[in-house]
Amino acid sequence: MKRVLIVDDEPDVRFMLRLILEQGGYEVDEAINGSSALEMLRGGSPDLVITDLMMPVMDGNELIERLRSDPATGSIPIMSLTSNPDASVGANVVVTKFPEVSEFLAAVLSILDGGPD
């Protein structure tokens, strides 16, 4: 089963994304900001990182930059989830908050070729 790491400072956003992704058959981890995501990534790489941009401690663009510059994480697909798509830098896919469930799962599927398994 493919693993997705959700990075967002808002608990309700994490809750909803987890719900949608788990119903879609994905395994989900959560981090509350970029810094805690980097901590979690030390324990292994997910198949996809979905990150908010505006977060405390470390924002989404800095997280993406750090992931890209590290050979161990540089190839992890990244989706940024933002209210202003123009502000996102370096993500594979940019999705405007808050997407329709089907649109969101389609975007995930476009990155994780072959679906959750």
Partner: peptide, 17 residues
């Protein structure tokens, strides 16, 4: 101004800290 989001105005949640 949606264009200002993130670039000039950031909304950040503190509760989890």
């Amino acid at each position: 101004d949606r264009e200002a989001l993130e670039k000039a105005v950031e909304f950040i949640h503190l509760g989890d800290l």
